Each structure stands twice: as structure tokens, then as C-alpha cells.
Amino acid sequence: MAAAAASVEREAGRLTELDSAIGDADHGSNMQRGFAAVVTVLTTDEPATPGGVLVAAGRQLISTVGGASGPLYGSLLRRSGKALGDAPQVTVGELRTGLQAGVAAVAQLGGAGPGDKTMLDALVPAVEALGTSFEAAAAAAEDGALATVPLLAKKGRASYLGERSIGHQDPGATSSALLFAALAEVAK
């Protein structure tokens, strides 16, 4: 979570720039505030298990981040953490299964799927590629985020723009790619 927070901190301006084209120009600052709060909470009261870390991080994002990002990222992390349970350590396969549950929660909450120009365009291929390696997951997430540029937004605030959403990279997919890049960095 600390690596994710550092990545979001570094890229907050770019996330806001992406969001200003097709959203309400607050994705970077919201994610920055949310992940800084996550680091504070985890430093103050460090959960003993990987699942506990994700549940606590998700809970903090829901309470700190405004707009749709808080509930979506919070649900991703909370559901993933709950799927991991109380195991003191998890395998990559168990993490992948937990993340699949988290991605399903995001899809259900947002009513979106791959190709709708949302964070799912990065999350779905990343979790699938996690079966290969952390690096493959990060690359798949980045490719998924870049692949949103030519898409017409079908869900979220960007969908209100209709055809004008085409040609812009989705900020949620981009921040999702940042999280997988941080995961790959830490896994090294």
C-alpha cells in the first residue's frame, strides 16, 4: 500500500489531467488523499494478515475518497481482503483469486464490464495475467489502460460525453495500472 501511495502521489497530476478531459478533474487529488490516508491508517494500526491489510485499506478509501473512486477502489480492496480471509500468508494464486472477487465487486457496483472505458479495462487483464507473473499483470494493466483511448465510454461520468470520450485515456484504468505497477515493484 505504501508503494501504491507513492505511485499515486507521483502521478496525481497526470491522473487529474486525464480526468479533466472526460471527468470532473479530481481523480488525482482524490486518489492521492485516499492512499495517503491508507498509509496513515496502516501505520497506526497495522493488520496482521494480507487480507486484513486490504480490508482496512478499502474501508479507508471508502471513507476518504469522494465520487465513485472511493466506493469502487474500496470495494475492490475490501472484497479481495475478505476473500483472502485470515491467512497469515497468501500465495500468488490465492491473491489472484482474492483479486478476482474484488474485480467482480467493482463490476457489480459499477454495472460495467471490459470495453466500457472504466477501471475494469485495466483490472480484468491484470488479474488474468497475474497467473503468469506480477510483471505480466502490471504490463497487462498498462496495456488495458492505454487501450481505453479509442473506446466510447459506456459507464461513469465519461459516458455523459458520448463520442467526445473517444480519444482520451480513462483515469480509473490508469490509476488501476499504477496499483499493479506498484505491486510488481514490491514483488521484485
Results as ranks from 00 to 15, higher is better:
17 E>F: 14
17 E>N: 13
18 L>H: 09
19 D>R: 04
24 D>V: 11
24 D>H: 08
26 D>K: 08
28 G>A: 05
28 G>K: 03
30 N>S: 08
31 M>R: 06
31 M>N: 07
32 Q>G: 07
33 R>C: 03
33 R>P: 03
35 F>V: 02
35 F>I: 00
38 V>P: 01
38 V>T: 01
39 V>S: 02
41 V>N: 02
42 L>N: 00
46 E>L: 14
48 A>F: 12
48 A>P: 12
49 T>N: 05
49 T>Q: 11
51 G>D: 03
51 G>N: 06
52 G>H: 07
52 G>R: 05
54 L>E: 02
54 L>M: 13
55 V>E: 02
58 G>K: 06
59 R>K: 15
61 L>S: 03
62 I>A: 01
64 T>L: 07
65 V>E: 00
65 V>S: 01
66 G>A: 06
66 G>Y: 07
67 G>T: 10
68 A>E: 04
69 S>K: 02
70 G>E: 00
72 L>Y: 06
72 L>E: 04
72 L>D: 05
75 S>K: 03
76 L>S: 04
79 R>S: 08
80 S>N: 08
80 S>C: 12
82 K>V: 14
84 L>H: 03
84 L>G: 02
85 G>T: 01
88 P>T: 14
88 P>K: 14
91 T>D: 07
92 V>H: 00
92 V>Q: 11
93 G>Y: 00
93 G>E: 02
94 E>L: 00
96 R>L: 04
97 T>G: 06
98 G>Q: 03
99 L>M: 13
100 Q>Y: 02
101 A>I: 03
103 V>Y: 07
105 A>D: 09
106 V>Q: 02
106 V>C: 01
107 A>L: 10
107 A>H: 10
108 Q>D: 15
110 G>T: 11
111 G>Q: 04
111 G>R: 04
112 A>D: 09
117 K>N: 09
118 T>A: 11
119 M>N: 06
120 L>H: 09
120 L>Y: 09
121 D>H: 15
125 P>R: 10
126 A>E: 05
126 A>M: 06
126 A>H: 06
127 V>M: 09
127 V>G: 02
128 E>A: 12
129 A>D: 07
130 L>E: 03
131 G>P: 04
131 G>I: 06
134 F>T: 09
134 F>K: 05
134 F>N: 08
136 A>F: 11
137 A>R: 03
137 A>M: 13
137 A>P: 08
138 A>T: 10
139 A>T: 14
141 A>V: 08
143 D>A: 15
145 A>H: 13
145 A>G: 13
146 L>P: 10
147 A>I: 08
148 T>D: 12
151 L>W: 13
151 L>Q: 15
152 L>V: 12
153 A>S: 15
154 K>A: 12
155 K>D: 14
